[in-house]
């Protein structure tokens, strides 16, 4: 069993706080934080119900914040790419295929997640988009497709119990709706 440094859990706790905030707002409780040089630079949580946009996952929320912020500060695309390459993501649930692809396009350094995502997971469960793809033409490889390190199982039970309470809270009368 690998032992992780204390800060891994500290950052995951912050991601769980974000997930809790989602839960309080009737959103699927998944949250994340982006960390650069040991500092949280962005956080995000699911906002799919509020926006009626099922792509507004925690990761996307945080990424949009960062891109906007950096753009406002006048950073060029190359500079933004450099910043992302120093970022570590802590997210309570394994990034889905969409988010894993996005993280690969951005070229982040590393990701830690809580529980696995058996149905949609893009970091090993369904597809493995975090690994570098050697089948890619060299011109694509030359840019930034080098993959990112991904570690799961960090405070997974906390993440799962949040998801569980979400689905229980959505069913106040206890009526089974299964087909």
């Amino acid at each position: 069993m690998t032992s992780y440094v204390k800060e891994t859990f500290e950052f995951m706790k912050l991601a769980l706080e974000q997930a809790n905030d989602a839960l309080a707002n009737l959103e699927v409780p998944v949250g994340c934080v982006f960390v650069e040089d040991g500092e949280v630079i962005a956080s995000g949580r699911n906002r799919t119900t509020e926006t009626r946009n099922a792509t507004r996952h925690a990761e996307m929320e945080a990424i949009d914040f960062l891109v906007q912020q950096w753009q406002k500060n006048g950073l060029s695309p190359l500079e933004v790419s450099e910043r992302f390459s120093k970022c570590t993501l802590y997210v309570t649930c394994e990034p889905c295929i969409m988010c894993a692809a996005a993280l690969s396009y951005l070229g982040i350094k590393e990701a830690y997640y809580g529980c696995a995502n058996d149905k949609f997971g893009g970091c090993g469960s369904v597809l493995s988009l975090h690994t570098s793809n050697s089948n890619l033409p060299t011109s694509e490889l030359a840019s930034s497709k080098k993959g990112f390190k991904c570690t799961g199982g960090i405070m997974a039970s906390e993440a799962v119990s949040l998801l569980r309470s979400f689905y229980e809270q959505g069913n106040p009368n206890g009526i089974s709706l299964s087909p």
């Binding site: 695309p77 951005l106 070229g107």
Partner: peptide, 23 residues
């Protein structure tokens, strides 16, 4: 999708692919 950083600057966002924007 990996080559967004090589674009000229200006108004841009690495993940605003057409389908994402249409959604």
């Amino acid at each position: 999708p990996w080559q967004w950083a090589l674009r000229s600057s200006g108004c841009w966002h690495p993940l605003r692919h057409a389908a994402i924007v249409a959604i």
